[in-house]
Amino acid sequence: MRGALHAEWTKLRTVPSTWWLLLAVAALTVALSAAATGTVSTDQCPSPDACHEDTVKLSLTGIWLGQAAVAALGVLAMSGEYGTGTIHATLTAVPRRVRVLAAKAAVVLGSALVAGTVAVLGSLLAGRFILPGNGFSAAPLSLTEGPTLRAAVGTVLYFGLIALLSLGVATLVRDTAGAITTVLGLLYALPAVVELVGNEEWRERIREWAPASAGLAVQATKNLDSLPIAPWSGLAVLAAWAGAGLLAGAAVFTLRDA
């Protein structure tokens, strides 16, 4: 297993796109987060203290961009091998396919978590600098606050789970375009469909089960009652999606010719 891990890590780190994608995860997340915190103001509220804005969630808005790069990372880790034919060499060297997938999952998860940590810390730091200028208190953005810690840790885990989900989908679909389109559909189209659906009950149901909207419930620090799903349960829904994707991928991977 250690050999498989080492092999996967070598493959991942020697592809230039990996480093660009990891950089993109951090840079895009922090950039969009900073833009989001830069546009809010307390004008609409009677007083800055009466503004019930969830500043923590707002400071982590950038995940909506960062997750696209993580998804690409997860997909390419598998589909890239099929595109270039390396998969034959890989499976000749390590014939146990579940082991190959597990090693890939481990290295992809590890790099997504590291990039995610940088992205989340950078976003919160940007929020701490920008929000006081807009009349908000920076106090809730401290990691010593329980809910903030939950949001921060949860967001990092969210990045990791998205990477695993993407890897699973790519193992199922094998080709880059199909896999990335499927993952982007799950992450972006489902939340967008919610905006188009009129019926409140249906909206709630989609929000509860769609990977992105359920998983991002973990970012909330205020008005937890109005969430479609509780923070950790939402992340569990995403974990179920990722697990199901990986399991299905593993099953097909073992049964099918490469």
């Binding site: 961009l65 696209a68 998804a71 690409a72 389109t181 982007l184 972006y188 905006e195």
Partner: peptide
């Protein structure tokens, strides 16, 4: 492929989710 699909889809679909905020 991956970069181009991601870029175009995110630019066209993400605003639907984020514009209301």
């Amino acid at each position: 492929t991956a970069a181009a699909v991601t870029l175009v889809v995110v630019v066209l679909v993400l605003p639907l989710v984020l514009l209301s905020g």
